[in-house]
Design a protein around this nucleic acid. Sequence first.
DNA 1: CCGCTTAACGTCAGTGACTGGCGCTATGGA
DNA 2: TCCATAGCGCCAGTCACTGACGTTAAGCGG
Lengths: 197, 197
Amino acid sequence: MRYPRSVPRSGAEARRRLQQAALELYRERGFDQTTTAEIAARAGVNERTFFRHFPDKREVLFDGESDLRAALMQAVAEAPEGLQPLETLLRAFRKVERILEDNRPFAEPRLQVIAATPALRERDLAKAAAITEAVAEALRQRGVTDRLSGLAAQIGWAAFHQAIQAWIDDPSQSLDAHLLHAFDDLRALSATALPAQ
Amino acid sequence: MRYPRSVPRSGAEARRRLQQAALELYRERGFDQTTTAEIAARAGVNERTFFRHFPDKREVLFDGESDLRAALMQAVAEAPEGLQPLETLLRAFRKVERILEDNRPFAEPRLQVIAATPALRERDLAKAAAITEAVAEALRQRGVTDRLSGLAAQIGWAAFHQAIQAWIDDPSQSLDAHLLHAFDDLRALSATALPAQ
DNA sequence: CCGCTTAACGTCAGTGACTGGCGCTATGGA
DNA sequence: TCCATAGCGCCAGTCACTGACGTTAAGCGG
């Protein structure tokens, strides 16, 4: 059996083709109805190659997560001193907005598939948890208490996530506007009243 | 082949035995190193029966989730009117503490296994997301805005979850004390400063 | 220009989670 | 007493994922 010459063996090339093929097939037939063999076939590679690039069938849609996490940690670390935790986070989120905005054509169908597939939602939640944990660690290195760092990271991420969702649903506003709006909501929630005792 | 008479065919009985066997095996060999056939064997049933009671290998550890969700939704619905969202949630969480406290002997090793197994952590996060979504819906039925309900539910759950973790790590304090402490932290976070613009 | 190393891939065989189908049997009424 | 049904055992099959080994192409020193 001869090896096809048409497909370049560059590595990163096949990886991108696999991601593209997976997203297309997940949208066409649904995640559960597409096999890894089909993804590989559309990408012009062997099924085994799929698992050399991605540890499982879900991970193929979660590639940029480590970039976003790294960018967020750096943004938190570089924030000016003296800021309160949630102030720090808002600044950090605003700094990484570009990463999402540049990826919008890819991010939109991707989020659609994830929302429609329980298995992918689970993975998405796991990625979010990993990011918030990293953000919490970055806060700790700025001197934020162990107790507060975790809570602050989760609260901030919740607002960021809500902003992203609103931005997907309503593209007429910028992600930045949605983000500021979400932090307004945060303020509204805590400003009114937090029970004493 | 005769059917064994020793195992009662009650249904709920086999279900409990499967949960017990799964928890034991996950602790002894780890989640990835135990097969569903082994769980079924220890429970004295066929592997097929395992999948009649639980949709997959993870779900066997997440049985009480629907009870907790239902109790939380009811507690939110029954809270007195005029309370702010986070006030409502604190009252609701305090009402369902007993469910967790009564289950502590089972919950402790369970959480240990979950924390040590990525696949189980994913499922745990999914369950938490389902609960927060239900809580958000309960808040909406009390008239809380769409925008605020989701954020409030996530913030409240984050505090509740932190309280549970602290309670597992430090049983000398009651879960209620940990919960109040966590909401204190919430207050500390938002009292200091939320960035205006 | 030639051999050599190595990265990326193909192929094969195997494990294990999960499903559908079918037959059995005990149990609780009619 | 009969019978519908729930709960289970058994079998065959699909598919995600893995380990081992062979194959090809590209870079690199000679």
